[in-house]
Amino acid sequence: MIAMIDSIKSLKWVDLFFYILVDSRSLANIIVQEKKLSLYTGFIIIALVSIIEIITFSLFGHETQFFFYKISYGCIFLFLILSLGVIIYSSLIDLFLQFRGLSGNVNQILNLINCSLFIYLFLLPFTYIFKVLNFAPVFFYILFFGILIVWQSLIVIQGISEFHRISFAESMLAFLFPFLLCGVVFFFSFILILIISIGFFSSI
């Protein structure tokens, strides 16, 4: 507890945020040096992103009291979903890297992806401006979301490249591997479900 208070006071976490925004390679080095700090900060970022995402999304509709459910249970649910997603995603990247003969360190990748989510906090102020101006807020929400996805991808790719001293292209391949794997799995699952459904409905 004391160590945690000390690390908060030291403002090292602010440096972490700074490097997320400006220098992904330095961020990777900090993650290697400050394992605990980056782990805690990473999960706090996920919690913040969950809240911000729900608030941003709620700006568009005519909200009812259901908003209270979203902001309480919804945030917890989104936090769990995001955490699980990040854990699975980083494990798959690590799996790929180990197949390529590199040393495995899922913790580092997990912390890197968690920290990279920090940029999604900007989604609210950016979108809110257009909501206040009443100028195509949904369009700009989607646009900013797209930009942030690209930005996050660059942070993760550069981070992985820095961790393992590999080329940007190879790092990008590792980043895309989970998507390719999921794509293949979903494709075959879809085919399987289709065959089963046709069989089921034709037997009725």
Binding site: I52, I55, S58, G61, Q65, Y128
Partner: peptide
């Protein structure tokens, strides 16, 4: 700045909720 915009957004949603009371998207309420 992010914190400030979050607070403003919550206030905005709160005002919005007052306006739309009994109107659209009325999901089962207590």
């Amino acid at each position: 700045l992010i914190l400030l915009s979050t607070v403003l957004a919550i206030i905005d949603i709160g005002i919005n909720m007052q306006k739309s009371k009994g109107k659209m998207f009325q999901i089962s309420m207590p």
